Amino acid sequence: MRILLAPDSFKEAASAEAIAQAMARGIMRGDPQAECRLLPLSDGGEGLTHALVHATGGTLHDVETVDAVGHPIIAQFGFLGNKHTSRTAAVELASASGLEQVSPADRDPMAASTFGTGLLIRAAIDAGADRIVLGLGGSATTDGGTGLAHAFGFRFLDAHDSDIPLGGGALVDLARIDDSRVSDSIKNVPIVLACDVTNPLTGPEGAAHVFAPQKGATATQVELLDQGLANLARAIMQYNGRDIEHTPGAGAAGGTGGGMLGLFNATVKPGIELVLNLAHGREACAWADVVITGEGSIDSQTPYGKVPSGIAKLAQSQGKPTIAIGGTVTRDPHTVEALNETGIIATFGIAPGPADLTTLIANTERNVEITCAAIASTLRITAATSPCESA
């Protein structure tokens, strides 16, 4: 039996690559005769760079940059392999400007900026990239991508033509945008934004109201951040006539989607579709008899733009079934029905029994291995006992 192992990361527990390897160990325990192919994936958030580099035989590159609150860190970008016609670099915002990069005590939703991600993209371009795939997800920021743009020379000025500070909190004072220090070559580099959300920039469903509380913002700060993003939208409209405020995906990564669409040569694509295309997911599904995928939580969001549903739909289009595993798995009938419609025929939780969250996270890879061993044994027995056609 040929089994494609195509998981996302299990957030705060293990990377997609580590999960795929644990799956493979389990499959070999349950069915030593099985053939496995590993295809760790991402929907545009954490793990995008490693997923694309792994799938294409590319290379990873370390860069000295800063996190969302300005502390020095080492982050990575990757060059895609497989003889891509363009020199494509993969960058994930979470690598430099992610929430998990900043300790809870240091998180500052008003001052956090994407400046470090800008430095990372600059390093990729300086190394020869002529196309960027930027994963939007997992950010600690609500600055509309202004920190990122600042790293390329954009200036964000107040009514007195003074530079405003980095961070979303300062955008309430933004009066105009100056690009006199930005080269045309930078503005013209194609940037594809891998995004799994469709939120607009502002309003009740916008970046501040939906995502900033997860980054530590109070109710008062949420309102100020939303006002700042609306101010940024007006400034961009004045700068080049682009209307980004209500564009689907503009609210991704604290409004970075909107800032990129407004200031750069950027386009938005669903993250999982982009990754599956670049990682040759269709060919991998064609090879497999069955697909096993997974993510940290199989829940009501899973059927909509997440890795398990994305790979399942692709496998379903070729008549291949998909099984999903997760740290937690919902049994809500409506969600189960939605999962079935994507092509996921069964879901399995990896928790062996009652335990505290710290223990479950620490044992994630072991529990994935045990679960996949059981799945492989079941698949092997089912295949062996399937009734033969009568003569």
Rank of each mutant, 00 (worst) to 15 (best):
R2F: 06
R2E: 13
P7W: 03
S9L: 03
A20P: 00
R25Q: 15
R29K: 15
Q33S: 14
R37W: 04
S42P: 00
T49D: 07
H50I: 02
A51Y: 09
A55M: 03
G57S: 10
G58L: 02
T59F: 02
T59I: 05
L60R: 12
H61R: 13
T65Q: 02
V66G: 01
V69G: 01
G70C: 07
G70K: 02
H71I: 10
P72V: 12
P72G: 13
A75P: 00
F77M: 09
F77S: 03
S86M: 13
Q101N: 10
A105I: 06
P109N: 06
M110Y: 01
S113D: 07
S113Y: 07
T114V: 06
G118S: 07
L119H: 05
L120C: 11
G128V: 10
V133R: 04
D143Q: 05
D143N: 09
G147D: 04
L148Y: 12
A151K: 11
A151S: 13
A159D: 11
A159V: 09
H160P: 00
D161K: 14
P165V: 10
P165G: 09
G168Y: 04
G169I: 05
A170F: 05
A175V: 04
R176S: 14
D178N: 11
D178K: 08
D179R: 09
D179G: 09
S183D: 09
S185K: 11
K187L: 13
N188L: 08
N188V: 04
I191Y: 11
A194F: 01
C195G: 04
V197A: 08
T198F: 04
N199P: 00
G206Q: 07
P213V: 09
Q214C: 06
A219K: 13
L224V: 13
I236K: 06
R242P: 01
R242T: 08
P248E: 08
G251I: 01
G251C: 06
A253Y: 01
G257Y: 05
M260K: 03
K269A: 15
P270E: 10
G281D: 11
W287D: 04
T293W: 03
T293V: 01
S297I: 03
S297E: 05
I298R: 03
D299P: 00
D299I: 06
Y304H: 15
K306D: 06
P308G: 02
S309I: 06
K313P: 02
G319I: 09
G319H: 13
K320W: 02
P321H: 01
P321A: 04
T322S: 14
I323S: 03
T328D: 12
V329N: 07
D332P: 00
D332I: 05
H334Q: 14
H334D: 14
T335Q: 09
V336P: 02
E341S: 14
G343Y: 11
F348E: 08
F348K: 08
I350Q: 03
I350M: 12
P352G: 08
A355E: 13
L360R: 10
T364A: 15
R366W: 07
C372T: 12
A376Q: 04
R380K: 15
R380N: 14
I381M: 15
I381T: 14
A383R: 12
A384Y: 08
A384F: 07
P387E: 13
S390T: 10
A391S: 15
